[in-house]
Design a protein around this nucleic acid. Structure first.
Lengths: 133, 133
DNA sequence: CTTGACATTGGAGCCGCTCTAGGGTTTAGC
DNA sequence: GCTAAACCCTAGAGCGGCTCCAATGTCAAG
């Protein structure tokens, strides 16, 4: 299978796949006579895992490492690491969501102030940063 | 005032300030005899606005442009643009928060599946991507 | 035989800093 | 006067994770 076909199957792009290869995150595939990359079903399965793990927003290196281990038959260990990674990611998500919600409330507040005639200088104060130093 | 003092007052770093200058987002400041940058209160006010607008997560270029306009006395116009930018940013935030919450639910679900003995391959499916093509 | 879709490579670009290397300057204490 | 810490300077690389570009090669359909 050629790179375009593989990319389409896995909802990614040839660019991304070559990028993973350059980074050493995927095994170097066979080449056809015309020098085109030629992927097996095993290659596809490994990439499928990698792409799937990336969709969980795991760091690329970790996603690639886990995909490789799984393909090498160490699925048990992958399950464990994955559970740990997921729980960390969920904590991070909670923090990030809180941040974004906080920013949203702040923006709503500022929009209100601007609407009632306050100047931008008065509104953007960094919380009176300069006084408490 | 020197760059370190300014950075401390505005809770940013000398590196960031020099970076803004290199990008042409801040006016080139005076230099002292020793070639150190020397900032006036006006410089500080402009940077304060820039930093404040960045804290609202506006794009750097836009934040710098608005800070410049405000310093140049076009605050009315800045107020308008800012209201618009804020409302766009809030929409973006809502979308982003939804995405993150969706991912969190997905992670919770996967953690449950992994906990009850499913293999990573079975769990990470890209939603059966390959079949519906 | 041409057109168009695919493939190849290396490298730049995005965002917004952050940090490093390899220097020079100032300041505080002794 | 001297030393050490803390500041300042510049130019440029690095982060993450792709995305896109140029310039070229390959191949199937009409």
């Amino acid at each position: 299978m050629r790179i375009g076909t593989l990319a389409e199957r896995l909802r990614t792009t040839p660019h991304a796949i070559r990028f993973y290869e350059r980074r050493g995150l995927l095994p170097v595939p066979q080449r056809a006579d015309n020098r085109y990359r030629s992927y097996t079903e095993q290659d596809a399965e490994r990439l499928r895992l990698l792409v799937g793990l990336r969709q969980l927003d795991l760091p690329l290196e970790q996603a690639a490492a886990l995909a490789g281990m799984c393909t090498a038959g160490h699925c048990e260990q992958v399950s464990e690491e994955l559970r740990e990674a997921i729980s960390q990611k969920r904590e991070e998500l909670r923090r990030r969501i809180d941040e974004l919600q906080f920013l949203d409330r702040r923006l709503a507040h500022l929009a209100g102030q601007l609407g009632s005639g306050e100047t931008p200088q008065a509104v953007i104060t960094l919380g009176k940063e300069e006084r408490d130093v």
